[in-house]
Design a binder for these strands. Structure first.
Lengths: 240, 240
DNA sequence: AGACCTTTAAATGTCTGACAATTAAAAAAT
DNA sequence: ATTTTTTAATTGTCAGACATTTAAAGGTCT
């Protein structure tokens, strides 16, 4: 039906994998066999297999008794894919800062409640370490943002639900590019740092209400900063 | 460094796209030019391009002035990719039903609060339509589950935040395969249906507390059903 | 001049055949 | 029994050819 053979072949093989017909670690027929089955050349089969490899659906192994094998999608890989897709989505679609912020903090607050029950000393230690780093003078914007992401990731992980950590990967990590615009002044960093401290303390005390409140404050402040930056940029554009 | 040329080429091109060096609708060099640039054959370049195409990063166009163009990732595509990845992740990693349920309903409750402010008559109508469908006798398990997903998707969309809808895609839609195990009896459907009604009513009344409570009830009941099914299955396994 | 047809060149899509590199099993040698 | 060598299967890469598609350029007719 399609005018792209390799896409069609990839689709059929993908279906076989997703439907469970080909299970984890199952070996696909060799490229030559697939070419015969589909009545096409080896090149077309290879292009199809590369498509599947790009989606982490298969791995290939050279040599005798090698071939393409169905791959188990790990949390780490799924996490990475989710972050890449989300980053791309946000960077290519002019998403409003407000909307992205709202989504991120709404979801993060949902984690906060669970995290109060489940947080371990490990999670608290990670958060405190990032807070310390954020207090060091002369931190570059990139380093600050990376640390910010690590802090929030620790908060999400503290909820102790790997599925949720995966789901929130995009919300937390893909925000980084958007956050880069708002951390210009030392004053704004100071304020954010104080709010991070409040969150960590409330989490240590397992005080869900305070965690929630601190996250709301942080959301409000972040939104304000975003607006200020946007307004300043608009003014500059007018001036130029 | 890698022993896979096409993967290496794909990586470099992907970086150029993600970093913004190649912007939306930019045309990549032709396959022949890329082959020359990378000092390899056209086949290897083609395999690399297919990898990028599989990730929706480029589209190709045949003919003169055709070629590979950077593609804008739409919400719909990102949504679809997220669902596929999540489904695969859940199906391949023996995720506990409890953990998945907790993640899903925790995130959904977070939407509930926002949805009370933003829900439109359209959202309510969609939810009521699905409730009606769920009440029709003789509904297959697949149809029931699809309708269930549509209902919850409407609830998420009612929050009026497209970024959030995208983020929750995995949580809502990838649960379908897991839900398929628990909707065996008419009695359980009836109970779920009643809870759906309660959610819709509370949302219409913009009563956040009741929405939250109803979602919690639904979560609790779903978890119970899951346990029952699991226990029954274990008992059967012992017997066989 | 404008509308319609034809040609052309550039590009991707596909096929064929070849060889290199890798690898595990089988066979041979010690 | 252990080590080494051979072998066969399989993926990775390349070169060259041809098919197909497509938009632009050129030509023809009114």
């Amino acid at each position: 039906m399609s005018n792209d053979l390799s896409a069609e072949i990839a689709k059929q093989l993908r279906n076989a994998i997703v439907s469970g017909e080909l299970i984890f670690d199952a070996r696909l027929p060799s490229e030559a066999e697939l070419a015969e089955q589909f009545g096409c050349s080896r090149s077309s089969v290879r292009e199809a297999l590369k498509r599947l490899a790009a989606q982490s659906l298969i791995r290939t192994q050279r040599g005798a008794f090698g071939g393409a094998f169905v791959r188990r999608l790990s949390y780490e890989e799924a996490y990475g894919e989710h972050v890449t897709t989300s980053t791309l989505l946000l960077s290519m679609n002019e998403v409003s800062f407000d909307v992205a912020c709202e989504a991120r903090f709404t979801l993060e607050r949902a984690c906060g409640a669970l995290a109060c029950f489940r947080r371990t000393p490990d999670h608290l230690a990670t958060m405190r370490a990032e807070i310390t780093r954020q207090g060091t003078p002369g931190l570059t914007d990139e380093a600050w943002c990376a640390s910010d992401v690590a802090f929030h990731r620790a908060l999400v992980d503290a909820a102790g639900n790997p599925v949720m950590s995966y789901q929130l990967a995009g919300a937390v990590e893909a925000m980084q590019p958007l956050m880069n615009m708002i951390t210009f002044t030392a004053r704004s960093r100071e304020r954010i740092l104080a709010l991070h401290g409040a969150i960590a303390e409330a989490l240590e005390a397992r005080d869900a209400t305070r965690v929630n409140q601190s996250l709301e404050d942080l959301a409000a402040y972040t939104t304000t900063l975003g607006h200020d930056v946007m307004a300043a940029r608009d003014a500059k554009d007018q001036h130029d």
